[in-house]
Write a protein that binds this DNA or RNA. Structure first.
Length: 608
RNA sequence: GCGCCUGUAGCUCAGCUGGAUAGAGUGUCGCCCUCCGAAGGCGAAGGUCGUGAGUUCGAAUCUCGCCAGGCGCGCCA
């Protein structure tokens, strides 16, 4: 994504023409970018350029400027004028504004602006004290359903669920912060042939369960003899047996059908192992601080799915081809298969029915899917078909947000040392264990009790795991380096947590600031303050691109700037004014950092 | 064969909806604790942005070709 473009998009609504927008000027002076953009926009007008984009953004050459405007370049191009002359004219107007200490034209026509320290410090109390630290929603808030996590009954959660849950939840948090109404749905895989297979295998192993007695009426108080581990083990075994043993396969098919028809004994048993999966998933997601609002599954839309397929057949949208019911696609795209030639409905049908259910229940503006990058074709078929069939209204946006795979050092999908697929529980446990080892070996945390160490190492370990997963552009594969993950050096979860713990610690030990006066006496303070002001733009870019890594990157830079400030600017022994000012900076930084951490679903301990 | 994604420092990655001298981290080398948390900070070295054209005043960024890697292509999810 392009920073400049995203910011300019963000700026588009601020044309300096507040009256026509029926919004008070005050409300728009909510962050530094909009303040400057208003000034530059006014200068454009005064110089005779009315409708041009100002293209204001934080300078990418901090040695030359605080903010820059690239609008003169674009303007000169469209009007066939000399860009430097255009920039000079605008810059002459800007120089009249006492807000800036320096305005100059550089290179082909960049307008560079430096802001007076007093202006910069004065704005802090107006901007950084706001609940959202200057972030202002540009367009109308939306209702959005987000589909992530995606656990499957009978299968153990693995690294793919880590990505789906982490990324989906982070995007949900970002959207929620931005003002959207969000609904996170786990989309449980709890239907179809796998369920029949599990039922069959459970019967083989525990034939005495009441569910299989001919006179079954209910399972009140019955304690199931199997655990989640048994269910997870049962599925692949059943799957293998079914391929060999025809009778076994027939039994599984029959159970699948009877389950879907609602036969009570099977439904009751099915519910037992679905609940086991759900409880396990809930536990893991809670450990990861991934929030879900909804636990709809494929079973939730079963009845709807049956009706939908019938109606698609009636309308001619679906056609029979080689024994299967399909929906033809545009161009070379292969058809979507609704019902296979054996008469079983496919997951594409279930996904379409789920869209219909979500539309009916929530009337969302958008539905966003977080699944791995291999499902692109599937979703393009489902989306196109849902639109074509009128299941999804035209104005509802269906969005597929793919993510790359997690690879080992060999750049092949990540495996444990024994070659197995690492479970999510294993990943969490080993991250926590590593954090604990680090804590026990280090000088830090000596004064903590064992219980505190347990809790903090869990927080740190999970943050390490999550941050590693969120710090890169989600569409790319990344290499899982378990040692680097828990390192406190460099761009890691523990580094961020450490910086934030320091901020908390400073405020706790030296007290909160007495008033909101801010003074700048050191370059590190100025750098940190300027960075705090760019929070709104970063949120906007992250929002527009559904890109948690933009927040991750911003938080990292904020912590770097803070650590430099912390190192260069002593607080305890400074004079009262300086001390108070620096405490203000710490408080502002902590506030913004905690918002960012929350967007990423990172918990921040008080000590570590 | 068709389609999607990726290729930037030794390594791991930002930047990619066109702008200045392409940024971090890590690794290597050097420096900084009498001080609010050194799980920290500072500095040095390190790049034909896969490749070749094109568009443009200006290309890592846009277009096209090529090369390399990953993934997907009707009855699993």
């Amino acid at each position: 994504m392009n920073l400049a473009k995203s910011i300019s998009h963000f700026c588009l609504i601020f044309k300096g023409d507040f009256d026509t927008m029926n919004i008070s000027k005050k409300e728009f002076e909510m962050n530094l970018l909009t303040v400057i953009n208003e000034k530059v926009s006014a200068a454009f007008k005064a110089a005779g350029f009315d409708d041009a984009q100002t293209l204001v953004r934080a300078a990418d050459r901090p040695d030359l400027a605080d903010y820059q405007a690239n609008g003169a370049l674009a303007l000169a191009k469209s009007q066939h004028q000399n860009p430097r002359e255009v920039a000079e004219k605008i810059s002459e107007e800007l120089k009249k504004d006492s807000f800036f200490s320096e305005v100059s034209v550089a290179g082909p026509g960049f307008i560079n602006m430096k802001i007076k320290d007093e202006e910069l410090t004065k704005l802090a109390a107006q901007i950084l004290t706001q609940e959202k630290a200057g972030y202002e929603r540009a367009d109308k808030p939306q209702t959005v359903v987000l589909d992530y996590c995606g656990p499957n009954v009978g299968k153990v959660l693995h690294v793919g669920h880590l990505r789906s849950g982490n990324i989906g939840d982070a995007v949900r948090r970002i959207m929620t912060f931005a003002g959207d109404k969000t609904i996170g749905d786990a989309h449980l895989g709890d239907w179809g042939r796998p369920m029949g297979l599990v039922l069959t295998e459970l019967q083989h192993r525990w034939p005495d369960m009441p569910y299989f007695k001919p006179d079954y009426t209910g399972d009140d108080g019955y304690q199931i003899p199997f655990t989640l581990a048994d269910v997870v083990e049962a599925y692949p075994i059943a799957s293998a047996k079914a391929k060999e043993d025809e009778a076994y396969m027939e039994q599984a098919k029959q159970y699948t059908r009877e389950l879907q028809e609602g036969k009570k004994n099977l439904r009751d048993l099915w519910k037992k192992f679905v609940d086991l999966t759900k409880a396990d998933t809930q536990d893991l997601m809670q450990q990861l601080n991934v929030h879900l609002d909804l636990w709809w599954g494929e079973s939730t839309v079963n009845d709807r799915c049956v009706k939908m397929i019938e109606s698609l057949k009636q309308s001619g949208m679906a056609e029979l081809d080689e024994g299967a019911w399909i929906i033809r696609q545009e161009g070379d795209t292969p058809p979507l298969i609704l019902v296979n030639s054996a008469g079983a409905s496919m997951y594409a049908a279930s996904d379409m029915a789920t869209i219909e259910a979500r539309e009916e229940e929530f009337k969302p503006d958008a539905i966003i899917y977080f699944t791995d990058a291999r499902q692109g074709l599937h979703f393009s078929q489902v989306f196109a078909s849902a639109k074509k069939a009128g299941i999804c209204p035209e104005n509802v946006k269906l969005e597929y947000q793919p993510f790359g795979s997690v690879n080992g050092a060999d750049n092949k999908p990540y495996k444990t040392r024994d070659g197995g697929v690492p479970t999510l529980r294993f990943l969490i446990d080993s991250a926590v264990q590593k954090a604990r080892t680090k804590m026990d070996a280090g000088e830090i945390g000596r004064d903590l009790t064992d219980a505190e160490k347990d809790e903090i190492s869990h927080t740190v370990g999970v943050a390490a795991l999550k941050f590693m997963d969120l710090m890169n552009d989600k569409v790319k594969n990344y290499i899982f380096d378990e040692e680097r993950m828990v390192s406190t050096e460099g761009k890691t979860g523990p580094y961020l947590l450490y910086a934030m713990v320091r901020m908390k610690s400073v405020l706790e030990k030296l007290g909160e600031p007495k008033d909101d006066t801010l003074i700048l006496t050191n370059p590190a303070e100025r750098k940190l303050l300027l960075n705090l002001y760019t929070f709104p733009e970063n949120v906007q870019i992250a929002y527009d691109n559904r890109a948690p890594h933009v927040i991750a990157d911003y938080l990292y830079k904020l912590c770097q700037d803070f650590n430099l400030f912390y190192h260069d600017c002593p607080i305890k022994d400074a004079d009262e004014t300086t001390k108070n000012s620096r405490l203000n900076l710490v408080a502002y930084t902590l506030k913004v950092a905690l918002i960012c951490a929350d967007m990423l679903g990172l918990k921040v301990p008080n000590k570590m």
